[in-house]
């Protein structure tokens, strides 16, 4: 089922065009990976999906992105509500310098001032979803910056889940992590796939091949090829895709 439909998206930083005529459907309960060399626009594309680029002066988008059929650039779309529906996990773990509990409770508190009891349950559920509950249940009051980087990244994911989003965007979520922590995150993604629409930007092609259902290949601000991951990695239609995947370009 189609969750997001991107139609003829152009994106500019000032006069510089960084995305050119991107169109693609993104399915619900699937993992969509975006690959391509640095500066190809894949992260910018990801950040248009929750309009995080709005915070950059001079950034401008053309075209449409439909979330459940509703254009996210429409004036009736509240950007705070959009971001609550489309959560994001960043490249470097960025928990707030607050306690573990307060980190996860942040979203529910600001969005609807959740009651104390519901909040405790929600925090526990979110931490369980990312497999962190057993590790931190006795130290919920501890400063989140004391956790290991891998734990911090899972905490950030729990913090995003606590908002109860429909879509989760991940911007190279494992690039700061060691291989073991990376495996944990990938394992998590496979589990979360049952309930969420996940879009991941990654430098790591093995990662894209391991976790994703579909893969899009970006090159110089254009979407060169978009297909089932297996097809992309075994029989790409475009010569450029094949060169990149086999390491001859990029």
């Amino acid at each position: 089922m189609e969750k997001i439909s991107v139609q003829h998206l152009n994106f500019f930083y000032g006069v510089k065009q960084v995305l050119t005529d991107i169109s693609l459907p993104i399915d619900d309960r699937q993992i969509t990976a975006l690959i391509g060399p640095s500066g190809c626009g894949k992260s910018t594309f990801l950040r248009t999906l929750n309009r995080m680029n709005d915070t950059i002066a001079g950034a401008r988008a053309e075209g449409q992105i439909l979330l459940d059929g509703e254009n996210i650039f429409a004036p009736t779309m509240e950007v705070t509500q959009l971001r609550a529906r489309v959560g994001m996990v960043f490249q470097r773990p960025n928990p707030f310098p607050q306690s573990v509990f307060d980190n996860v409770a942040f979203g529910p508190r600001i969005l609807n001032g959740a009651r104390a009891q519901a909040l405790t349950a929600l925090v526990e559920a979110s931490l369980r979803q990312v497999g962190l509950w057993d590790e931190v249940k006795d130290q919920l009051g501890q400063d989140a910056l004391r956790l290991s980087l891998g734990q911090q990244q899972r905490l950030c994911l729990a913090r995003t889940l606590a908002v109860q989003p429909e879509v989760i965007l991940m911007d190279e979520p494992c690039s700061a992590l060691d291989p073991l922590a990376t495996l944990e995150i990938e394992e998590l993604m496979r589990r979360l796939r049952e309930r969420y629409c996940i879009v991941i930007v990654t430098h790591n092609m093995q990662q894209a091949a391991r976790v994703s259902d579909r893969t899009g290949f970006f090159w110089l601000g254009q979407l060169v090829e978009y297909d089932a991951t297996q097809t992309i990695f075994t029989r790409p239609r475009n010569a450029l895709t094949e060169d990149y995947i086999t390491g001859r370009a990029g």
Binding site: M52, R83, N94, I110, T160, V163
Partner: peptide, 18 residues
């Protein structure tokens, strides 16, 4: 204060004041 903190809050749907 690192920009990444602000980004994290904004990405969860926080307003500028929050």
């Amino acid at each position: 204060v690192p920009k990444s903190y602000r980004d994290a809050a904004l990405a969860m749907g926080a307003t500028r004041w929050q």
